[in-house]
Write a protein that binds this DNA or RNA. Structure first.
Length: 423
RNA sequence: GGAGAGAUGUCUGAGUGGUCGAAAGAGCACGCCUGGAAAGUGUGUAUACAUCAAAAGUGUAUCGAGGGUUCGAAUCCCUCUCUCUCCGCCA
């Protein structure tokens, strides 16, 4: 959520930045400024009347104590009008605050200056490409066939017990999952992230804090009986650890990592591109999250991007890094890098990580602040990234490393899997 | 799920209608003291909004949340949420 005071003071810039994100309702900006003017006037009126009423109440108390009952009655009789006014103004203020809020949550974050204009994924900027795309044999198989051939993943069994998009991992498939999770967590800890293990369901306030709500209401599984949402990413519980927190400047940056399953309804996604592990309703992911000083957040974004790339390098996967264009960015992000690995059997890039700087967009909602060097309270910046999401990593590992002997496990994973070949 | 108790600042904890944004202690910050530290000692130590060019200052709101009674509510009443204890169930 953008800060009203910022919008008020930087109207032109806000409009210009929103245009980069192809925001469809720029008129909201002026509506917000208008409502806010109204709100501030009302606030001032209300404060003044309340001050008068407070002074009178105090006076009554003093008169009563002095035994001047009649004078006290006189003052009392004057308070009726104030009460009425306080009530009316208070209600008006609440209406204004609500409508201000309702419009404010519709504004996405402003994109960073480096974000390219554009509408579609095709317009994302390729920042770099790394690694060799493997040349597979003629009869190379896509991962869903490899999974069946080596008895690693049973999609039909998942359909039976839950539904499509909930695979059952078996044998070396299950072990590979655990190996990847442990590898990713260990790497994150080496990079200074401390591990947390968090709830997989969150309340509405948490969903709102990281801006999944109200924006992505329909994308999350919702447990109506208890009003809880299944997390779509560990970003939600981990970042919300710091909701309503004021940190000390020297505590920044805060670095956390955590493994969780993620649950996504993915409503409306069907077809070849969601085959196999390409898009699931439940998948495992290791997430890295940082709470940063505003002056440092873009350096930290690069550091997080480098961390993700290092993982891909260690796994020997060819990848590329995209800087998302305005139209393809998430609602709350100021700058997002997507990392994609090359799936040799499918001949396409698969997104395996997304690293974003939210600047103050989340922290404004979270009330996540720090006390700066001047002793002033200031909003912190939040960042997060996948490091990494498992399914598409598994997909590309299986596909890219297939040989006639079986599937070769990357060396870095062998200490975790305790086997070198899937055969 | 049933019965009871409770929710106050960073923490402990006082406060049952006015002088309470809130005692006291601890913690923390800064100073004094000290060769240095500890002890001792002094001062300070919530947040939001409004006002102001800005700071200072001032005003308003906030003692779990929301509503009510009253000239006046941390304190009384109602509703909700959460926590603790006991019982039940249970990985």
């Amino acid at each position: 959520m953008l800060q009203v005071s910022y919008i008020r003071d930087n109207r032109e810039q806000v409009l210009e930045r929103l245009a980069v994100k192809n925001f469809k309702q720029p008129e909201l900006v002026d509506e917000i400024i208008e409502i806010d003017n109204n709100r501030r006037q009302t606030q001032t009126l209300l404060d003044n009347v309340s001050a008068e009423a407070n002074a009178a109440a105090k006076q009554v108390g003093e008169l009563m104590r002095a035994g001047k009952k009649e004078e006290a009655e006189v003052v009392k009789s004057k308070t009726g009008a104030w009460k009425e006014e306080i009530k009316t103004l208070g209600e008006a203020l609440a209406v204004l605050e609500n409508s201000l809020y309702e419009k404010l949550v519709l504004l996405p974050n402003l994109p960073h200056a480096s974000v390219p204009k554009g509408l579609t994924p095709e317009e994302n900027e390729v920042v770099l490409e790394s690694g060799q795309k493997p040349q597979l044999a003629e009869n190379a198989l896509p991962h869903w066939e490899l999974a069946a051939k080596y008895n690693l993943i049973d999609f039909e069994l998942g359909v039976k017990i839950t539904g499509a998009g909930f695979p059952v991992y078996k044998n070396k498939g299950a072990k590979l999952q655990r190996a990847l999770i442990n590898f990713f967590i260990d790497e994150a800890e080496k990079a200074g992230y401390s591990e947390v293990s968090v709830p997989l369901m969150v309340n509405e306030a948490s969903g709102f804090g990281t801006s999944q709500l109200p924006d992505k209401e329909g994308q999350m599984y919702f447990v109506g009986l208890d009003n809880l949402y299944l997390i779509p990413t560990a970003e939600v519980p981990i970042t919300n650890l710091y909701r309503d927190v004021i940190l000390k400047e020297n505590e920044l940056p805060v670095k956390n990592c955590g493994h969780t399953p993620c649950f996504r309804r993915e409503a409306g996604s069907y077809g070849a591109h969601v085959r196999g592990l390409n898009r699931l309703h439940q998948f495992d992911k290791v997430e890295i999250v940082q709470v940063a000083h505003p002056d440092e957040s873009y350096n930290i974004l690069e550091e997080m991007s480098a961390h993700v790339q290092e993982l891909l390098q260690k796994l020997g996967l060819p990848y590329r890094v995209l800087r998302l264009c305005g139209g393809d960015m998430g609602f709350g992000s100021a700058l997002t890098y997507d990392m994609e690995t090359w799936s040799a059997a499918q001949q396409r890039w698969l997104e395996v990580s997304s690293v974003s700087n939210f600047e103050t967009f989340q922290s404004n909602r979270l009330k996540l602040r720090f006390r700066n060097a001047d002793g002033k309270i200031q909003l912190a910046h939040t960042l997060n990234g996948s490091a990494l999401a498992l399914p598409r990593i598994v997909a590309t590992l299986l596909e890219n490393n297939q040989t006639e002997k079986g599937i070769k496990v990357p060396e870095v994973l062998v200490p975790y899997t305790k086997f070198e070949w899937i055969d």
